[in-house]
Amino acid sequence: MKNILEIKNLTKYYGKVLAVKDLSLELKPGEIFGFIGPNGAGKSTTIRSIMNLINKTKGEVYFLGETLTKNNLKLKEQIGYLPSEISLYEELTVKEMLDYHESFYKKDLSKRRKELVKKLKLDETKKIEDLSLGNQKKLGIVLALMHEPKLLILDEPTSGLDPIMQQVFYDLLKEEKEKGTTIFYSTHILSEISKICDRVGIIKEGTLLKVESIKELQAKNLTNVTITSKEIDKIGKELNVKVEKIDSETIKFKNTLASNELIKILSKYEIKKLLIEEPSLEDVFLHYYK
């Protein structure tokens, strides 16, 4: 199947500082592609290069087979973009902002607009300057989705949203995916990636380290495990992994065993306390790519 978005050899220098190095990736139609990396890894620079907000030092971006330039309006009409920190016209009300957005598109957006406003519980009479950070984000989501784009570019979209709204947002993304929308989802939250994405690209210090499907990533089953038990030495021996001793009864280790296998081993012993944590991004990087 033809790729929706192709980034070829993207390189970006800010002066002498390298922000993104020779990055290439493809997005398939209808997939949610997670783009993950710590702060300063080059995620926003990549997105801003795609959106032509900044000039690429090298490389090309193709959307629907055509070069995506800043003046290609036909292509821009089919992109929805949500920046990480959304800034809108504070003097406008939500309704005026949505009307303003609508005025740039030739098609009728009123139906989708109504649906989104209702789902995200936005008050159209409020002024943007009076909206909380979360409500501004919700408005940003409506603006990114209301013209029913073929490609959605989302930069840290859930920051500022409460857990209920996060769930509403994930449901919205699933709906979009069912409709065939391709989603480029940038985040530094690992749990979001495993929840909604099909594939993931990991970026570190401007370099795309790896592109993997979520299934592949989950198969590796990396977790941080802390166990407290009187029989801690025996447990450590049986697990046969490199452990960090916290105190005489507690160990901590990076687990790569399948959950069933881990539980089977632990069930033989009396466990005082068991803590299984999601690894930090840094853990994932260190574990897989050091």
Partner: peptide
């Protein structure tokens, strides 16, 4: 200055 340019630039409108 107000950082609204990121939104404006995403709209189908030429810079000119």
């Amino acid at each position: 200055n107000d950082k609204t340019v990121e939104y404006l630039n995403s709209l189908p409108i030429k810079r000119t």
